[in-house]
Amino acid sequence: MENIKQKNSFLQLVSRVWKNYSIVVVFFVILIICGIAAPRFLRPNNLLNILRNTSIVGIIGLGMTFVIIAGGIDLSSGPVLATSGAALIALQKMVTESGDPAMPLIVPILVCLAISTGIGFANGIIITKAKLPPFIVTLAVGIIARSVVMYFCRGATIMGNKIPEFTNIGNGSIFRIPIPFIMAIVLALILHVTLTRSKFGTYVFAVGGNEKAAKYSGIKVDRIKIATYMIVGFCTGLAAVIEMSRMAAVAATSSGMQYEFEAITAVIIGGTSLNGGKGRLIGTIVGFIILGIVKNMMIMLNISPYLAGAVKGAVILFAVLIQRREK
C-alpha cells in the first residue's frame, strides 16, 4: 500500500516536471543526440561559440517574451536592429576619428538604445491609441525602419572603426564565457525578476490573459502594453550593439534580417503561448539555445544551408506539439 502511494507520488512528480519543464528535458535529449551524431559538437569551443552566436537573437527574444505574454507581437525587431545599429556605427566612427578613444563610446551606444526604445514606444503608442492590430503596426514600422536604413546607407555597408574597445563587446570573453552570452544572462535575470516578482510583470500576464478583466481591475492596460514594446525595443538596441561590434559594420540589406522571426521562434519553442497570458523567460533562453544548436548542427553535418528553414520549421512544430496543453 505504502509502496503504491510512493510510486504514485513519484509518477505525479515526473508528470509535473514533464508538464512544466518538458522543453528542458527535450533540450538535454537534443544535446545527447547531437553529441552522438557529431562528437565535435560537444567540444567546449564549439559550445561556447554557439552561445555567442545565438545570444543576439536571444536577447531580442527575451524582450519579445514580454510582448507576446501581453498578447502582442513585434515584427519590427530586425529592421529596428539595423536602424539603431546604423546610427551606432555612424556615431562610433565620428567619435573615434575625433581622437579621444574608448571613453565617449558610451554616447553612440546610448543613442542606439534610445532609438530602438523610442521606436518600441512608437509601436506601443500607435497600437494602443489607434487601436490597431500589433501585427500590422509593427510590420509597417519594420518596413519603414528597413527603408530608412537603406536610404541612410545608400543600400550598401557602412564601416565603423575596428577598435578593440568596441569589437570586444561582441567578440570578447570573460573567463572564456562569451560577453554576449553574459549580457543575455544578466538581462534575463533582471527581466525574470521583473516578470515574476514585480507588480508590472503580473499586470503583463493579466493584460495578455484577459484585457477586459485587467481593465475592470484598474490596471492601466495601455501603459502596460506600451511598456512591453519599449522593453523589446531596448533589448533590440542591446542586440544591435553586440551585432555591430562584432564586425564594426552595418549592412543595409542584411543586418538583422529575419531576426524578429528567429526571436519569435525562440519564444514559441520556449512554450510561451501566442494567445498571451502564459509564458516563461527560462523557456525563451532554452528556446534560443536550441535554435543556435540547430544552426550549428546543420554546419557540422554538412546539411545544405538552403534546408535551414525546413529544419527550423520542423523544430517549431515539434516544440509546440510536445508542449500542447490538453483542453
Binding site: K199, G209, N210, A213, Y216, G218, I219, K278
Partner: peptide, 19 residues
C-alpha cells in the same frame, strides 16, 4: 470581465490590492 482565467488564485485576488 471578472477574472483572468489562465492565471492563479493569488494573482486574481490581489490585482486591485496591488494597484
Amino acid at each position: 470581465t471578472g477574472l483572468v482565467l489562465c492565471r492563479d488564485i493569488t494573482e486574481n485576488s490581489n490585482y486591485v490590492f496591488w494597484r
